[in-house]
Design a binder for these strands. Structure first.
Length: 335
DNA sequence: AAATGTGGCAACCGCCTGCTA
DNA sequence: TTAGCAGGCGGTTGCCACATT
């Protein structure tokens, strides 16, 4: 574990800590307390830099560290907080007693992030992924009547879809920037207000109106045949994504975290269930039965990179269609 | 049984921020 | 005002353990 033992130009040791070093550090801090990390290694008789000592203490030796597998509630909390705070691991860790920012970061990168990607969710923005969706090629490869779908009367040019794609991407980036600008987080209400001002919260009723129609359209897309996206799983995915998009709203109203209630799953993998739970949590408007979700949603088979992208691609198309075209979007101007 | 691939995670790196003289 | 320093933070690295071939 860790790195090859070595020393830097000042003769300070690097790499994995030995039990003896740990013991010295613990004993010193028990007597003198943490702090003044620069002088600590010298006083404690350690051939380490202060920074290394601090990291070892905060990430591993601290007595209040809670080790072991993340619980369902912890994972749920991480996902929800990440959707608000982004990669502010220390801020997330502050709300998870006993967990370190490093541990949460590792867990996110090795577990949660991959699952979100597999579900076609951008783990950065917590929105459906659009990054590799070339809409114009989709347009060319299908006979979808997208113009009527979008309520456009003008002849639809593939370039419009490229532009729309760009707009949607920038929309997503706006969301991200907004969250990043909110480092001095002043409360859920303020952020919610800003999100609404930026039209980032989507109208669920208009989404649901399109769903049935979209599902039929999507089934005609190559590589998105019912074999790949079954009717039930596709609908389930749509619903879940829709609720996911609403999840921030719910979370703010609930003041970030509340104890989980009324969840039950038929599968055994707590980690995967927690994502589903996160997607649906506290959603009063949803008509989904959680058990049904767990049946329709299969995470059991690990996906290769290509399969991962393929799955995301198909689900992305479903979810892309749930974005509303802003009323202010004037295609004449764009052309 | 050996070789290879992959995931997990502790630890390091470098940048940023805030404090102080 | 500014330079230097310490601590904090997020991103990345690289080794080990386990799984797969």
């Amino acid at each position: 574990m860790g790195r090859t033992p070595s020393s830097d130009k000042n003769g300070l040791k690097k790499g994995p800590w030995t039990p003896e070093e740990d013991q010295k550090l613990i004993q010193y801090i028990q007597v003198h307390g943490p702090g003044n990390w620069r002088n600590l290694p010298k006083n404690a008789g350690l051939q380490r830099c202060g920074k290394s000592c601090r990291l070892r203490w905060t990430n591993y030796l601290r007595p209040d560290i809670r080790r072991g597998r993340f619980s369902f509630e912890e994972e749920e909390t991480i996902i929800q907080l990440h959707s608000v705070l982004g990669n502010k691991w220390s801020a997330i860790a502050a709300r998870l007693p006993g967990r370190t920012d490093n541990e949460i970061k590792n867990y996110w990168n090795t577990h949660i992030r991959k699952r979100l990607l597999r579900m076609g969710i951008d783990p950065v923005t917590h929105s459906p992924r659009l990054d590799f969706l070339d809409l114009s090629s989709l347009f060319n490869s299908t006979q979808l009547n997208l113009s009527s779908l979008l309520g456009l009367q003008a002849l639809v040019n593939p370039e419009i879809f490229k532009l729309a794609n760009s707009l949607l991407l920038s929309h997503t980036h706006e969301n991200q920037e907004l969250l990043l600008q909110n480092q001095n987080f002043q409360g859920p209400e303020l952020l919610l207000q800003k999100l609404q001002q930026n039209q980032l919260l989507h109208n669920q009723s208009s989404i649901s109106q399109h769903n049935d129609q979209l599902h039929n359209q999507v089934s005609e897309i190559p590589n998105c045949t019912p074999q790949n996206v079954s009717s039930s799983s596709s609908q389930s995915m749509q619903d879940i994504m829709g609720h996911y998009m609403m999840n921030n709203d719910q979370m703010f109203q609930k003041n970030v975290m509340l104890p989980l209630q009324n969840y039950s799953y038929s599968t055994s993998d707590v980690s995967e269930n927690s994502i589903i739970q996160s997607l649906n949590n506290n959603n009063n408007n949803n008509n989904i039965n959680n058990n049904q979700n767990s049946q329709n949603f299969s995470f059991d088979t690990p996906l290769s990179g290509a399969e991962e992208e393929k799955e995301s691609y198909c689900s992305n198309f479903n979810n892309f269609m749930k974005f509303e075209i802003p009323e202010s979007l004037n295609f004449d101007d764009l052309l």
